[in-house]
Amino acid sequence: MSFPASPPQVPAQGAAPVPGRFVSPVPVQRAHLGHALAAEWTKIRSVRSTVWTLLLMAGFILGVGGIAVLYSRGSTKPGDDFLSLGFGGFLIGQISVIALGVLTISSEYGTGLIRTTLTACPQRLRMLTAKALVFFALVLTLGTGTIALFVLLASAVLGGTAGAPPTGTLVRTVLGGGLYLAVIGLMSLAVGALLRHSAGAIATMIGFVLLPIILGLFAGDRIGRFLIEYSPVSISAAIFGEALDPSTNGWQLLGVLTLITAVLLTAAGVAVARRDV
């Protein structure tokens, strides 16, 4: 392979040499959020880590959930909430979403690509917003779809004995589960933007998911109960109908998680806008 013959033709074809100030013959259009969304979509679909992490997520939810469903064929009674069988796979599957959320932004910092990105688009909040929206939409779609697929499989196997779950439960598990994955992923993206370091941010997020429930066991009565109830593990359980406190439901807990995510995203926005890159 070699360089093309010189002299290189840089301007678009047909450009006449202009004396004085250079004016590009390529039509100029003012860039906006739509452009940034298209760019982020190109980025996220053009790396293998996206495909791998999302396949892993689907594999855990369908695989672990599927095994649980098959094992409970004999013991299911009419009226049983068999959707809770999906909890285990969902709990593990969210780790892949966390990794993808972090990598979506930390890989740009890790390689230095963020400088190229912010040179092409110095509106840093636009870049962050586009990343967050594209990632959120992707995980929400695939997360909801995967859980829906799990529910279909579980219903096919156990629905005959247990009967169809009520609509409210279905919506909570399918849409709530998809939203939970998208929100925890978005939180990971915010942490990735704040820490700018892949391994550190992934470890922080896994700590955030697991630590409250472990600390809760050792903390005092009130704090311990609070930590356990609002831990991501408990929220996941509530989405699958296994709430610790029957007076709270999955949606309320999801609201708390969303609130924390909103705070972290705002912090990430401030940090990204202000910091040197």
Binding site: H35, T42, G112, L113, A120
Partner: peptide, 28 residues
């Protein structure tokens, strides 16, 4: 600007890299 030749995602093709930059800046 060219700041650092190594500042690309190693897993992305040259074309996708440039395409994302073009989209971001609103370049045809």
């Amino acid at each position: 600007a060219l700041l650092d030749a190594k500042a690309v995602h190693g897993g992305r093709s040259a074309r996708s890299h440039l395409l994302s930059l073009a989209q971001l800046a609103g370049v045809p």
